[in-house]
Simulated assay, not measured.
Amino acid sequence: MPRQSISFTHPNDEWLKDQVDSKEYSSKSEVVNDLIRQARKQQVQIDWIRAKLEKAEKSGFTSNTKQEILAQSKSGFNE
């Protein structure tokens, strides 16, 4: 696994220490890797929403109800 050397502000370092001290994580590296995984997952969701919005803008108006649009969006989000 590649190693990196990074610097943290004091408050961020304290927060990382707290996460390890609380036994939530076994190391600061584990915390940082989990945060990166979460950010990557969030970016996938943002990209999905952005693509849906762009598609919707190009498609024009719909006669679907709010409930139908919401149901379609929820069913497609987990794909």
Score class of each variant (00 low, 15 high):
73 S>A: 12
68 E>N: 02
60 G>W: 02
66 K>S: 08
65 T>F: 02
55 K>W: 11
60 G>K: 00
44 V>C: 04
46 I>D: 06
70 L>Y: 15
31 V>L: 09
41 K>H: 04
39 A>M: 05
62 T>F: 01
37 R>S: 10
29 S>W: 05
40 R>S: 03
49 I>H: 05
63 S>W: 05
48 W>R: 11
59 S>E: 13
30 E>V: 04
30 E>N: 10
73 S>G: 05
50 R>M: 08
52 K>F: 02
39 A>Y: 02
68 E>L: 02
52 K>H: 07
30 E>L: 08
53 L>I: 14
39 A>F: 01
50 R>Y: 10
72 Q>L: 12
69 I>C: 10
57 E>K: 14
61 F>R: 02
37 R>P: 00
52 K>D: 02
60 G>N: 01
61 F>G: 03
70 L>R: 12
49 I>A: 11
50 R>Q: 13
27 S>W: 11
69 I>T: 15
52 K>Q: 15
42 Q>C: 02
47 D>A: 12
69 I>P: 04
33 N>K: 14
64 N>S: 10
51 A>D: 15
28 K>S: 09
73 S>W: 11
34 D>L: 10
31 V>M: 06
46 I>M: 06
72 Q>P: 00
45 Q>S: 09
32 V>A: 14
42 Q>E: 09
53 L>K: 10
48 W>A: 08
63 S>N: 12
66 K>D: 10
35 L>N: 09
55 K>S: 15
32 V>K: 05
